[in-house]
C-alpha cells in the first residue's frame, strides 16, 4: 500500500529537454502535419518556384533556361494580347462587381422588410450563384445570347432585331458581365445578414425626427453596412480577377472574337497549356499576384476613410 509510487502522481518525472519540448508542442504539430506538407509542397514551394520560373524560358521538355527579366520586358513592351487581356479583365471587374453588389444590396433591402415568403425569394435568388460556375450554365449562356438565341427571339416579338451578342466583339464581354450579375445571390445573403444587425430603433428614432426613407438609407443603412460592403467588394473583386470557365466555354477557348473575352486567366492558360511557355506564364501569374495584392492593400488602406466600424 505505498501511495508514493502511485502512477497517478501529478509530478512529471524528469525527462530530457527534447522530450519536454515534444510533449508541449508535439500534438499541435502532429495535427497540423497534413496542412504543413500541403503548405510547403503545394503552396510555398510552388509559389517560390514560379517566381524563379518567371525569369526563365521553360517549355517542360528541356530544363528551365535563365533569361533574366526578358519575360517581364516582353510583357510590358511587346505583347498586345497581354494589353488586351488586361483591358478585358479590368472592364469585367469594374463593371460586374459594382453592378452585382448594387443588385445584391437592392434585393436584400427589399427582402429585409419582414416580407412574407422571404425564404422562397432568397432561395430563388441564390440558386444561380450556386450553379453559376458550371459548364452547363456557360453552355446555356452561349445559346441565350447567340444570334438566333432566346434573347433575340424574345426581342423579335417587339420587332427588334438583336445582334449576335456572343460573336460580336462589341457585346461579347457584356454577356459575361450579365452572367456575373445574374449570380448576385451570395453577396445578397451576406447583405441580408448585415442588415439584420442594424438596430431597428435607429430607424424609429430617425423617422420620429422626420428623416425620409432616402435619408435614412444614406445616413443609417449604408454607413452601418460599409463593413459588409467592403467585405463583399474585396471577395467579389478577387473572384472576378480569377474568372475563367464562362469565357472559355463561350469563346471555345480562344478568348475571341478579336480577344474580346480574353480574360487574364484564360490568356495565362493559353500561354501555359496551349503554347507550353511555362516561364512566360509564370511571369503572367506573378503580375496577377501583384495586381491582386495592390488592389487588396489599396482597399484596406482606404477602408479607414469610408468603412464605418462602431467602436
Amino acid at each position: 500500500m505505498t501511495t508514493i509510487a502511485s502512477p497517478a502522481s501529478p509530478y512529471v518525472p524528469t525527462r530530457g529537454r527534447l522530450a519536454r519540448v515534444l510533449a508541449r508542442n508535439g500534438a499541435g504539430y502532429l495535427f497540423l502535419l497534413p496542412w504543413f506538407i500541403g503548405f510547403l509542397g503545394l503552396t510555398a514551394g510552388p509559389a517560390l518556384a514560379s517566381l524563379y520560373l518567371s525569369f526563365t524560358d521553360f517549355d517542360l521538355l528541356t530544363s528551365p533556361r535563365w533569361i533574366g527579366a526578358a519575360n517581364y520586358v516582353r510583357i510590358a513592351t511587346a505583347d498586345p494580347r497581354f494589353i488586351a487581356s488586361m483591358q478585358v479583365t479590368f472592364v469585367y471587374v469594374l463593371l460586374s462587381v459594382p453592378l452585382k453588389l448594387a443588385f445584391a444590396l437592392l434585393v436584400a433591402m427589399a427582402l429585409n422588410r419582414g416580407m412574407k415568403g422571404l425564404p422562397w425569394y432568397r432561395a430563388i435568388f441564390y440558386l444561380p450563384s450556386l450553379l453559376g460556375t458550371s459548364v452547363a450554365i456557360a453552355v446555356l449562356w452561349r445559346q441565350l445570347f447567340a444570334g438566333n438565341g432566346l434573347v433575340n427571339s424574345f426581342l423579335a416579338n417587339f420587332g427588334i432585331e438583336g445582334p449576335s451578342w456572343i460573336s460580336n466583339p462589341n457585346y461579347s464581354l457584356y454577356t459575361l458581365v450579365v452572367l456575373s450579375v445574374w449570380q448576385f445571390g451570395s453577396p445578397m445573403i451576406i447583405f441580408l445578414a448585415g442588415l439584420r444587425q442594424i438596430p431597428q430603433d435607429m430607424y424609429e428614432a430617425a423617422s420620429l425626427d422626420g428623416a425620409s426613407k432616402w435619408r435614412q438609407f444614406w445616413k443609417i443603412t449604408l454607413p452601418l453596412l460599409t463593413p459588409v460592403v467592403f467585405f463583399n467588394a474585396v471577395v467579389q473583386t478577387i473572384e472576378a480577377f480569377k474568372a475563367f470557365t464562362p469565357a472559355f466555354i463561350i469563346s471555345g477557348g480562344t478568348g475571341g472574337p478579336i480577344n474580346s473575352t480574353l480574360f487574364y486567366t484564360l490568356y495565362l492558360y493559353q500561354e501555359a497549356f496551349g503554347f507550353f511557355r511555362m516561364g512566360y506564364a509564370s511571369a503572367l501569374a506573378w503580375i496577377l499576384l501583384v495586381i491582386v495584392a495592390l488592389f487588396t492593400a489599396f482597399s484596406f488602406l482606404t477602408a479607414r476613410y469610408w468603412v464605418h466600424y462602431d467602436d
Binding site: 499541435g28 495535427f31 497540423l32 514560379s50 480577377f241 495565362l268 501555359a272
Partner: peptide, 27 residues
Amino acid sequence: LKFWGRNFWFAIMLGTLMLPYHVTLIP
C-alpha cells in the same frame, strides 16, 4: 492546442487565402 509558433502559422494560413491559384499552378 498550444504549440510554439501557433499564431505565426495561423497568420500564414490566412495569408494563403489571398494567394491567387495562378501563382502555384505551373510548379
